[in-house]
Design a protein around this nucleic acid. Structure first.
Lengths: 285, 285
DNA sequence: TTCATATGAAAGCTCAGCTAACATAATGAA
DNA sequence: TTCATTATGTTAGCTGAGCTTTCATATGAA
């Protein structure tokens, strides 16, 4: 497509608006600029093409023959562009909001609450994809994500959701708070969380004779622990429900360390649906 | 036409180019920008619409479904716009170059030389409209003009063509150079040129008993003077041919005073035809 | 493995696009 | 006819959209 001899698109749009309005002032109001901007654009298109396109007549302007022909083409062209954009927006708005979250967060925090979201916003369909991978939101087609980390992901806007302190939990009666290492209780560790395991050892919360079992998900660890099978460590936010409801008791807790759960999305203006979901997340703490 | 929810036209054009090229780098070359500019625009359209449009695949990019649909609409839209501009340009290029010049200049300087222009540029049709009015080039549909004055016309580009000194002339033998005021020769003055008349009186070139006749055009004055009927004063450039050819002799001359003949045209890029004509004018002195 | 060519990303530059201000022109009401 | 209103015309000056520059990372061919 040869753009070499085409006046500026901004100028052509200004001319298009003036042509259809028959007035620089009216065109200015429609495009939210001053009449001076319209006038400058129109005259620059005229100068570029070497033809008069709009001439003053009374309190407005009228199209010359050349102007009428150009205006027809621009009307068609810009009409197609606007229609195409509108159509893509409509398609985007009609598919579910696509959300990615870590497995743990999805299972322990989001899914238990999602019913309330749907109750409040039945018109917003969601597609929740648990993934521990650092997915590329854009490439993989997600609108918004919840990620665990330090919040420093270049090219993304991040909003802090939950601090990442950890709590050691067990079912009531399984172990006394000050005798975690001396108890015979089994430690359940999630595979991926080497860091929290290291913390447990450095805090002296695991005895030499204590068994430890590594499982693949926090959900599995929590199932075992809820059943009185032992002790585990998890992000505090993910076990806060169990603690509140008395299914588990808090035995020990780390200090927050700048790591946490964050809402992430691409920069720029957010759609209403993403705004709504984000706002709900922040309130559902 | 609702532009409210439409991404920037520059960004849509960048996307259009990338979509058809399948490569940011190739699109950049086509639009004469860097690949970074293309990438920024494309990602900004994606962010605005909330949809992935182009994804990386190997060394290039491919369209998503949403991207393909938008690309179709943009291709149509931009195609119409470019075709419309091209059509108007073609029309402009097919009509004669429209030139306005003062009557005197047209008659005494331009028309005697225009044959040489047509000989050299037979493909450029001209429409020459003599007019002493300060015409509005744009409103009255002129491509270029020759005006007499100080060269200070806001909103126009001016190029000095001829200085405006004046020469007093008569046919050979009619009057001696140092006896203009003492001769009985009749002064012929052009109606509009009060200023040159004043100069003649202040220079003491007209005697108390000398008759003067006011005519409407310089051409009329020159006809009478060439026939030996008396003396006149004219812009030097306009009588240089008569002097060279011996039909008239120079009796006295004013100093140039910042007034002259100028080529005028609207600001901005000139079409090739206007450039050619202008260049020819400057060489035809 | 190396090299050429692609996209990704962010800091920083600059001029296209605009506003503000004032001038002039046209129209309509009194 | 005069005056108010609303239009376009024009220019100086501001600023952020659009871009470049630079460097990083990814891909594919040799």
């Amino acid at each position: 497509m040869n753009w070499r001899d085409v006046p500026s698109l901004a100028a052509l749009r200004a001319f298009d608006a003036a042509a259809r309005a028959g007035s620089f002032s009216q065109a200015a109001r429609e495009l939210n600029v001053t009449h001076a901007a319209i006038a400058q654009h129109v005259r620059s298109v005229e100068s570029d093409l070497g033809a008069s396109l709009l001439v003053r007549q009374g309190r407005g302007v009228v199209l010359t023959d050349a102007g009428a022909r150009l205006a027809d083409a621009l009307s068609d062209g810009f009409g197609q562009i606007i229609a195409g954009v509108k159509s893509v927006r409509a398609d985007v708005d009609s598919r579910p909001l696509s959300i990615t979250a870590t497995h743990n967060f999805a299972e322990s925090w989001l899914m238990p609450r999602i019913g309330k979201f749907w109750a409040k916003y039945p018109e917003i369909a969601l597609s929740i994809v648990p993934s521990n991978k650092l997915v590329d939101l854009r490439k993989d087609g997600f609108d918004v994500g919840i990620r665990y980390g330090d919040g420093n992901w270049p090219g993304l806007e991040t909003t802090h959701l939950l601090a990442a302190d950890y709590t050691v939990v067990a079912a009531p009666g399984v172990v006394k708070t000050d005798q975690i290492a001396q108890s015979g209780a089994t430690w359940f560790f999630e595979d991926a969380h080497q860091e929290s395991q290291r913390w447990v050892r450095e805090a002296g919360l695991i005895g030499p004779s204590q068994k430890s079992v590594t499982v693949s998900t926090l959900g599995m660890a929590l199932s075992a622990v809820r059943a009185g099978g032992g002790i585990t460590i998890a992000a505090s936010a993910l076990v806060s429900d169990d603690i509140r409801d008395g299914r588990l008791i808090a035995l020990s807790q780390t200090q927050p360390e700048g790591i946490g759960y964050y809402i992430i999305h691409p920069p720029g203006v957010l759609s209403d649906r993403v705004k709504t979901f984000k706002k709900w997340l922040l309130k559902a703490l």
